[in-house]
Amino acid sequence: MNLFQIIREIEKVDPEIMDRLTHRRSALTALGDISKKMALAAAPIAIGSAFNKAMGQQTLNSVNDVLNYALLLEYLEEDFYAQALAAPTLAANLSAGSPALGAIQTIKAHETAHVALLKGALGANANPRPSSFNFGTAFATYASFLTFAQAFEDTGVRAYKGQATKIKDAGNPNNLLTIALQIHSVEARHASHVRYMRRAAPAGSIAQYGWVTNAEANGAPAAVYGAGNPAATFPAESNLVQGGLTLTSVGGNTYTAAEVSEAFDEGLDNTTVVAIARSAATF
C-alpha cells in the first residue's frame, strides 16, 4: 500500500495530518535508508491513529461530487475486472465456458454499465478516467484476485450506502437516490457471489458466506470492514446496535453477535473509502 499517497490524499481534507505525523516524519528524515525501511514497517500503526482523527468528515458537497465519487469507484472496478479478464495468470481459472468466467464477465458488464450511467448523469461535469490503475500483485493468483474483488465489492456496498442521506438531503434530484440504491444492491449481489466463489475455490477455500460476519476480512484489508468516521454513523461491520437497540436481545428473542452483524451492512464515509481504494490500487 502506498502510505504517502494516502497521506497526500488526506492532506486535501485535513491539512493538519502531517502535524500529527511530524515526529514520525522527522524520524524518517533523520534516519538512513535501511532504517527507513524498518521504520516504515511500524508506520501503519502511526498512520492508523492519525486516520481516526483525519477522517472526521464526509467531504462531498454536492450531488455531482457524490456522482463523481461513485464514478471513480466504478472506473476502478471496471478496470480491475478488465485487467483480470486479460491476465494470463488467471486464464486457467477463468477458462472459456467456465462459471467463473461467466460470473466475472457479468460483473464487469455491470460495472461498465454503471460507468456509462454515471457519466451520462454527470454530462460535462464527469471527471475523466484516471490514466491507469495499478493493482500490484492482485492478479498473481486466482485466490488473490478473488480477495481483491471481495474487498472492492464489499467496499462499494459500503460506499453507496454512505451517500444515501447525502443525495436525499440535496433534494434527490432526478430521483438519483433510487438509482444509487439500484446500483448499491447490484454491488451487494456481486459481493455475495464473489464471496461464494472464494468459498468454492479449489485452493484456499474460505469458510464464509455471501454476507459479512462480524468484521471478518478473510484476507481483505481490515479497513474494508472497520469503522469509518464518524464511527457513530459508520460503525464497523461488527456493529450490534441499530436505531438505539442492541439486537442480540430484542423482542424476547436472543441472537448471536455474528447473526446480528450479518443482518445489517454498514455504510462508510467517502474519505475512508478512497483511502481503502488507494491502499489496494495506485491511480
Partner: peptide
Amino acid sequence: GKIVSVEARHAAYIRDLLSNGSFA
C-alpha cells in the same frame, strides 16, 4: 440501506443455489 444490501446478498446466494451464476 443497511438491510437492503443484506437482502441482495441473500438473493444472490439463493439464486446461485438454483442456478450458479444467476446472482444478478
